[in-house]
Design a protein around this nucleic acid. Structure first.
Lengths: 240, 240
DNA sequence: AGTTTTTTTTACAAATTTATTACAAAAATG
DNA sequence: CATTTTTGTAATAAATTTGTAAAAAAAACT
């Protein structure tokens, strides 16, 4: 989803390359960092050294089986471990052996279900004592800079109270700029933060997007009062 | 905690063996005694005879569904009941129908989260000996957003007072959106909360359901005024 | 003033996302 | 168990967004 400094890292332990690939792809798409291990020994090694936030662990592994791996990791780390099993029967093994796996999922699994499980397990520490309906993070986040107002939940922008209809890309550019109002942001940074690291498009794309935003939020695009150009550097949102 | 005579006993009611196993394992590790029931009938039977300190109750059960089980047990026992549900919609059944469930947790849950909930509920029941049951404020059984009105009891929708006949699925989608009117909800979230996280189907199913709802509540489906698309993100109910 | 560099503006095409429809499968009804 | 209704899927159409390129304008520099 969003770019945050605290990206969670997930260690994937499986010897089947295609499965690892699918997992890596989907997890990164969801904004996680990933680590890979193809056998049990490597898994323990990486887990202890890199301390991932969650471990996806297949039971069937070369060199050291998943059950042992789980136990070893558990000896020194308190990380959620989600086991991947091929059959239901194997689950008994997981449980019988006092491994302390936190959860398991049987193959074949749907990517969506797996993602949901991962999220659930990452939520570990935040436990609400209250009986309240578990409304996921109730976030009514807003960014307000002068006459500009961004409602991050509604993906809605307002200028002087008037609703402005922005496309997603436009909204995100504006959001990024507004979140650091007053700071000049280079096109390079915008491309990286909004378009993504591996975007290889033209840097002038930023200009065009800015133009489009201006067309919507500025009274006179030739004399912008909100989204300002800092020639030779980049753009910024005026905050005074 | 040391071995005390007063080990708490927890009854686990679920027909999925692997889940029961993982629960038993973790609960016993935490120092609880466990009892198991695989279907609704057995659950009632065991509950009344063994009088456990807390009951973990899955909604989907053979022979007698979790809701009925809950009610039956409640008739004669004042034990904390923690329900397990796969979808959000089920929660309303739990809460709305006055079954007296004490808490619920949606799948997928992390084991840690569940453990924390169990502890919280056990603690509460201890304390509660003194102060009488908190009468949850009578739930609002209607959601009204602008011209849209949803009667959660009757599963009835009205637009400008006119009764609209919606199917169950349509009603639930609309309800979920309306309960957070103004908030853009992604298709992923809708699928998870309405269809259930285990649902395997295509994400575009959401679009079609939205289309059907619109066909019923909007004057002009091409220009929706109530159920709005936020392109690139999802859908929301307009609330202003 | 002329030249260069940078930014703005515009128009168009490509890519992406959503809406619509028809049909089949599944579930509910009687 | 036949019929009706609901629901999901897939294919196509429609709409919108986005990127690119190219020209115009503005600013900076000699």
């Amino acid at each position: 989803m969003e770019e945050m400094e605290n990206k969670k890292t997930i260690l994937i332990v499986d010897d089947e390359k295609p499965i690892v690939d699918i997992l890596v792809y989907n997890l990164e798409k969801e904004g996680y960092n990933t680590l890979e291990a193809n056998d049990g020994l490597a898994a323990v090694d990486i887990a202890l050294n890199k301390k991932p936030d969650l471990i996806l662990l297949d039971i069937m592994l070369p060199k050291m089986d998943g059950l042992t791996v789980c136990k070893k990791i558990r000896n020194s780390l308190d990380v959620p471990i989600l086991m991947l099993t091929a059959k239901d029967e194997e689950i008994d093994k997981i449980l019988g052996l006092e491994l302390g796996a936190d959860d398991y999922i049987t193959k074949p699994f749907s990517v969506r279900e797996l993602m949901a499980r991962i999220k659930a397990n990452l939520r570990k520490s935040e436990v609400q004592e209250t009986n309240t309906v578990n409304n996921e993070d109730v976030k009514t986040k807003k960014i307000v800079v002068g006459s500009l107002e961004l409602d991050l939940d509604k993906f809605e922008a307002r200028v002087d109270g008037q609703i402005i209809d922005l496309t997603l890309r436009e909204f995100e550019v504006l959001k990024f700029l507004a979140s650091q109002a007053g700071q000049v942001i280079t096109r390079e940074v915008l491309l990286e933060k909004v378009w993504g690291y591996e975007y290889y498009g033209d840097i002038r794309t930023v200009d065009v997007t800015v133009r489009r935003i201006r067309g919507k939020i500025e009274k006179d695009t030739a004399n912008p009062k909100i989204l300002i150009t800092k020639r030779g550097v980049g753009y910024y949102i005026r905050n005074n």
